[in-house]
Amino acid sequence: MAVDTNAASVEAAFHYQDVAALYLFLKNIKELKSFEVEGEEDIDLIWRNGKKSYIQAKETVSPYETFNVQYIKKALAVLSKDQEECNNDDIKSLTFLTNSHFPFGKRAGHEFDNDDYIFFTYQDLPPKMQRKVASLMESLSNSIIDYKLLHIIKIEYYGSDNATRLRVLRKSIEEFMDSAQIPSNKYQTLLHHLLFMTSSSSEFQNKTIEKNDFAGYASLVYLDDTSRIEKFFEEFDISHTNEEYIRNQYSQYLSSLTVDPHLINKVNQLVINYNTDHPTPPQSRRSYELDFINKNYKKLAPDLGISNYKSESLEVAKFIMWLIIINNANFKSLKEAIF
């Protein structure tokens, strides 16, 4: 995973379906197994019970104007084909998703104009909107849809800058951060990593984002952290020559990973092994950390893509292992919020 450090370039490449996919994943994170952007559909949600939600996402640049009916017809036709190709028992929902406040026209009602996020099953739609959907389905020859599976969702996405367009996503990220006990000052860092994760996966059709993938990118808010680097240099008495190397290179080694909990789990297993071999560990926390890391950091080098064993490269492994050790409580909270 090569993490782009240019947040502006990542956000510029971000699209509505990426925003919506992330929003829906975060909203249902405990019940979902994974999600895809540009998979079988614009968005696929894969639930823990194995069922799928197929989502057609249609954005408009003028969300307060009447939506183009041809987009709705096209979405319904694709969802009908999804239903035809799948066993209904394997489908949780067939969803038409938009940022439009009036997807069925202003005369059909203003229910979608009431909030940033609006959800309707077909059965709960106002009668005028139900009739519009039924009429559109009738105009699609040889297309049928099980209305019990049909959902209509609006997720707001509109504005002249990223902060405005991403305001709904920001709410869901901040709610997740609260449940995972991630400090609020980490918002921009987390946003950037999640944007990169989602937009880069959408470049490859059928690239599923598993929960472990999400956990790995979220954990980067702690691992990719230069704020503690001075303390590390002091604690481990790093030479001035190696200091400069670590500043310039550690993010490269970290981003060479497909970061997932295996890295954290490996360090935790090394801790267990160390505690078993040292029934009487060093008394102070500082002495404990120094002794453990100095005896184990080389074991982490292969996982970081460190193939040369020069001292400056190995001290990058030492730094990352130290970050994992001091953030263990944070990673536990993160895991509880995701799984």
Rank of each mutant, 00 (worst) to 15 (best):
S135V: 03
G105L: 06
E85H: 09
A108N: 10
K51I: 02
F67G: 03
R107F: 06
S80Q: 05
I91V: 15
A134K: 13
N114S: 15
I91L: 15
Y147D: 11
N88H: 05
K73V: 09
A57F: 00
K51N: 00
L150T: 01
T121K: 12
E65L: 02
R131P: 08
N99M: 00
F96G: 03
S141V: 12
K81D: 14
D82M: 15
A77K: 08
H151Q: 13
Y54V: 04
E138F: 13
V61G: 04
G109H: 11
K81G: 10
Y147F: 15
Q70H: 15
F119A: 10
P126K: 15
D115Y: 12
S139H: 05
K92T: 09
N99F: 00
D146T: 11
S135K: 12
P127Q: 14
S100P: 03
S139Q: 12
Y54F: 13
S135T: 13
F102R: 01
S100W: 04
L79Q: 00
Q130K: 15
I145P: 07
I118P: 03
L79V: 04
A75Q: 03
L140D: 11
Q130M: 10
P103H: 05
P103A: 11
A57T: 06
S100C: 05
Y122N: 02
D113L: 12
Y147R: 15
E85T: 10
T98Y: 07
I72Q: 01
L136G: 08
K73C: 14
V78L: 09
H110A: 15
K132C: 03
T66V: 01
T60W: 02
D116E: 14
T66K: 06
D90Y: 02
Q83G: 06
I118Q: 06
D124M: 13
F120G: 08
F120P: 01
E85Y: 10
A75R: 03
S80Y: 05
P127G: 08
R131N: 12
S93G: 06
I72T: 07
V78K: 07
M129W: 01
V61C: 05
D82L: 03
L94N: 00
T60L: 03
Y117V: 10
N99A: 03
K52E: 11
Y117S: 04
N142G: 01
Q130E: 13
F112M: 09
P103R: 05
T98N: 08
I118A: 05
M129S: 02
N68I: 05
V61M: 11
S100E: 02
K73F: 08
P127F: 10
K132I: 01
S143W: 01
L150S: 03
L94M: 02
F96Y: 14
Q56M: 00
S135R: 11
D113I: 09
I55K: 08
K92C: 09
H101C: 13
R131F: 13
K73D: 14
Y71N: 14
Y122D: 02
T66C: 04
Q123V: 11
T121Y: 07
D82S: 11
E65K: 04
F96Q: 07
D89M: 11
F104Y: 07
D116P: 07
L140N: 10
D90E: 08
Y122E: 01
M129Y: 00
K52W: 09
L125R: 04
S135M: 09
D113N: 15
F120D: 10
S53C: 08
Y71I: 04
H110S: 14
N142D: 08
K52L: 12
L79T: 00
H101V: 10
E84V: 07
A75Y: 06
T98C: 06
N68K: 08
P126V: 13
